[in-house]
C-alpha cells in the first residue's frame, strides 16, 4: 500500500473521477469534498504531480464566466496506473474488511462478548 496513506487514497479518488470523464480543478475538488473530508491543498498538488508524471494531459477551455478552465484528461499511462492502484486498494481493503468483520458485523454482539470477557477477567 502507498506509504502516505491518505494521499494514496485521494490519488485513487482523483484517478477514479478522471477515468470517467475529463474535469477541471474546482469541479474535482467539489466532487471529492462532497464525500470525503479533504481540502484543495491536498488535491491540487496531487493533480499537479500526476500531470507531471504524464498520467494526465491538460487543455484549456474558454468559459463564459471568468478565466478559461484547465481540464485534466487521463492518458493511457494514467489508466494503467489507475488499474494498478485500484487492484492494490481492492486487495488491501478486502483484507481489512476480512479482519475487522471477523467477529461479525453486529456491533451489539461484539460489545456484549467483550463485556463478558472483561467481567471474567475481573473475577
Amino acid at each position: 500500500m502507498n506509504p502516505q496513506f491518505k494521499r494514496g487514497i485521494i490519488e485513487l479518488c482523483v484517478l477514479s473521477l478522471l477515468v470517467e470523464k475529463d474535469s477541471y480543478g474546482y469541479d474535482i475538488i467539489s466532487q471529492l469534498s462532497e464525500h470525503i473530508d479533504v481540502s484543495e491543498n491536498t488535491i491540487y498538488p496531487i493533480l499537479r504531480r500526476l500531470t507531471s508524471d504524464d498520467y494526465f494531459k491538460t487543455y484549456l477551455v474558454e468559459s463564459n464566466e471568468g478565466a478559461p478552465r484547465k481540464y485534466y484528461q487521463m492518458t493511457e499511462k494514467g489508466f494503467i496506473y489507475y488499474l494498478s492502484l485500484r487492484e492494490e486498494w481492492d486487495a488491501f481493503i478486502g483484507g481489512v474488511y476480512h479482519i475487522i468483520n471477523q467477529g461479525g458485523k453486529k456491533n451489539d454482539d461484539i460489545f456484549r462478548r467483550f463485556k463478558e470477557r472483561i467481567k471474567e477477567e475481573k473475577r
Binding site: 480543478g25 475538488i29 491540487y44 478565466a67 478559461p68 478552465r69 484547465k70
Partner: peptide
C-alpha cells in the same frame, strides 16, 4: 493561474 481559476470559481 490555476488558483485564480479555482478561486474565482469558488
Amino acid at each position: 493561474r490555476d488558483h485564480e481559476e479555482m478561486i474565482s470559481e469558488a
